[in-house]
Every structure is written in C-alpha cells, then in structure tokens.
Amino acid sequence: MSHLFFLYFAGVIVATSILVVALRNPVYSALSLLIMFFHVAGLYVTLHAEFLAAVQIIVYAGAILVLYLFVVMLLNVKRDERYHVQAPAAAFLGLVLLTEVVLLVSQRAYQTAPAGLPAADQAGNTETIGEVLYSTYLFPFEVASLILLVAMIGAIILAKKNIDEC
C-alpha cells in the first residue's frame, strides 16, 4: 500500500517537473509546479512530516508561486520561444548524470533499509520540530530571519522605479 502511494506521488512529481521545463508558456509551467508542490506535500505526509507538508503548501504554493504568477502576468510576455542553443549539451549532461546516479544508488550498499529504527517520538511532529528549532537551532533561526529582512529590503529597492524620487 505504501509502495502504491509512493509510486503515485513519485510519478506525478517526475511528470510535472518535466512539464515545468518542457512547457513553453510560463503560466502553464508555474501551474504544473503547483501540482508538483502539492504532491511533494503528499510525499511529506507519507514520511510523517505533516507540519512540513502544511508549510510546503502554505509557503510554496500560497506565497512563492503566487509571486511568480504575479510577475508573469505583470510582464505579460507571450512570445513563442525556442530552446537555448546549448539544449543538446544540456540533455547529454542530464542523461550522463542520471545514469551515474541510478548506478550509484542501485549498488548493494545502499539497497538495505536502515536496521532497527528507534521508537517514534511520542510528542507530535509540530511540537518536536518546535523544540529542536528553538533550542538547538536558535542561532540559525535568527540568521534566517535576518536573511528574510535583507531579501525584503533588497526586493523593494530593486523593483523601485526611481530611487531618487523618494
């Protein structure tokens, strides 16, 4: 049963991520990325990361993708575009790396599932993440907020029409 769920989610994730790259209209690319985000969230649920699944949908699908769609519609570029001239080289590189990864992972050393998982946490998923985030990773958490502040100021300054006007 879990294999069935994994195969469904993995299949849809791979198909939509290929569509993101292959579709010519940026709006369609963004929408197939939306489907991919939802299925990645489903994969997180099967991995018992329910809180991350919710965050994935809220932040990625709700905030980041809407920002993309805003910019696509703001710029309103509907020109038919061809692929870049380096497409054959890129496809070759991708195929070589893919076969390499599949060969590496299919080695016997990686094949076995980890033996004897420790007992699952008694606390809920969200509670555990909160405890670790605000104790062990408190300093990186603060740095992350600083990164968001810098990004916010940078985006405002960069997208402003004329800085001298203000």
Partner: peptide, 10 residues
C-alpha cells in the same frame, strides 16, 4: 536533474 537541464535549456 530536471531542474538542472531546465536551467541550461530555457
């Protein structure tokens, strides 16, 4: 790898 090829191709 799909993302990588996408960065190079588009």
């Amino acid at each position: 790898l799909t993302g990588l090829v996408g960065v190079l191709v588009r």
